[in-house]
Design a protein around this nucleic acid. Structure first.
Lengths: 213, 213
DNA sequence: AAGTGTATCAAACGTTTGTTTTAAAGTAAA
DNA sequence: TTTACTTTAAAACAAACGTTTGATACACTT
């Protein structure tokens, strides 16, 4: 057995742990996720978590990957034209990462959990992921409504946009009970993105008018 | 000692338990709240929870009170004029109940927690409180945008409004780290309500235009 | 004064949690 | 084969959880 094969084999446990952890954490949150279920799904011994990582918390931190979210900002900044269009594209892509169950969106769902239920790693998440994309949207809003908007009002505009998006995930337990038939398939996400986009652009235009009458 | 005095005295423990439970549950959520801390704050023995109520979950159910929230809908329906005005009033009063730290809003905060972190009692909360006020806002939106709106689009409009409001509570751990100086005092809540109101009315107007061009 | 039912208490119960231990199995170089 | 090192395994760890127990104190009725 070659060295590479050995590496890939010994790394298998670690990789399976990471994959299983992503699923379990995103389904149950950090607190409710148990190391036993993670190990069961990864088909490794229970001691593996503390062997490869040092703790449940470190495993959680290792599952975080901010790149897809940050890449989203860069992508939108490149291939688009006016600020309005870029905001619409961002909302669409963001919702895709946030809601699509089939997509590789576990990363995003995992982080979305933390907004409501803080863990010791939340500080890092805010600093490296949430703050940048909030700033990114804030810049877009600035371009759309003009520079004269106050800092507080700018903040509220950003919150309005993210609030609309996040509600579909934060409020999912409720939404599922209110509308049991509702599924986040591709078509539904497109419709949601279109709605939030138009809703928000109109809202921003109104705010802009208020600021400089 | 008369019977009434005895009753009021023996009820003291029960009432103190309820008051403490409301605080602890709203601060930590159902899972993270411990019966020991509730009893410590209520200054009662640890066995009191299972003596007066039957379980931690039953205690939690007993802390729920949907009246303030439902009363809000009735109040808005009475003393207001046009649908737009009523929506603005609702958003304002709702945010007051949801955010004001000094107000007696623990009830609302307690329920807001459950939106993201479901408990066995969530079904009751949705049925008795959330569904009615969602329906209430849906009716307002219908009045504003006209009857021709589709059921799905109507739902998204309601979600947009609630999403904006709830983000200030659901995302509080994040918001606190993003804007450490931000406090939900009376003035700030007024500003938030004004923002969400104008933002949403403009959004609704846009949606209405889309439906019947 | 004896009896009855309620309220409170410290202590322990049985689980479940994340983590650690200790030993065995496997792998590669000497 | 021997040696050194890495990886797996079962079992147990201490801590925290919600809950239950059994005894005690109290107020009220008979």
């Amino acid at each position: 057995m070659t060295a590479e094969t050995k590496n890939s084999l010994s790394e298998q446990a670690r990789e399976r742990l990471l994959a299983a952890a992503r699923v379990v954490f995103s389904e149950n949150g950090f607190q409710n996720a148990t190391v036993r279920e993670i190990c069961r799904r990864a088909e490794v011994n229970i001691a593996a978590i503390n062997y490869y990582f040092n703790s449940k918390e470190a495993l959680f931190a290792a599952t975080l990957n901010f790149e897809p979210l940050l890449a989203l900002c860069k992508k939108v900044n490149k291939d688009s034209t006016c600020a309005q269009e870029r905001l619409l594209n961002f909302i669409h892509d963001f919702l895709m990462q946030l809601l699509d169950e089939k997509e590789f969106s576990v990363q995003c769902q995992l982080m979305a959990r933390e907004l409501a239920e803080p863990t010791p790693v939340l500080g890092k998440i805010v600093q490296e992921a949430i703050a940048p994309i909030h700033q990114f949207v804030a810049n877009l809003v600035c371009e759309i409504v003009g520079e004269k908007i106050s800092e507080a009002e700018l903040r509220r505009c950003v919150f309005s946009i993210f609030g609309q998006c996040m509600y579909y995930r934060h409020g999912q337990p409720v939404i599922q009970r209110l509308h049991p038939k509702l599924r986040y398939d591709h078509r539904e996400i497109e419709a949601i993105a279109k709605h939030i986009g138009e809703f928000s652009l109109a809202g921003l235009k109104q705010i802009a008018q208020n600021q400089c009458p």
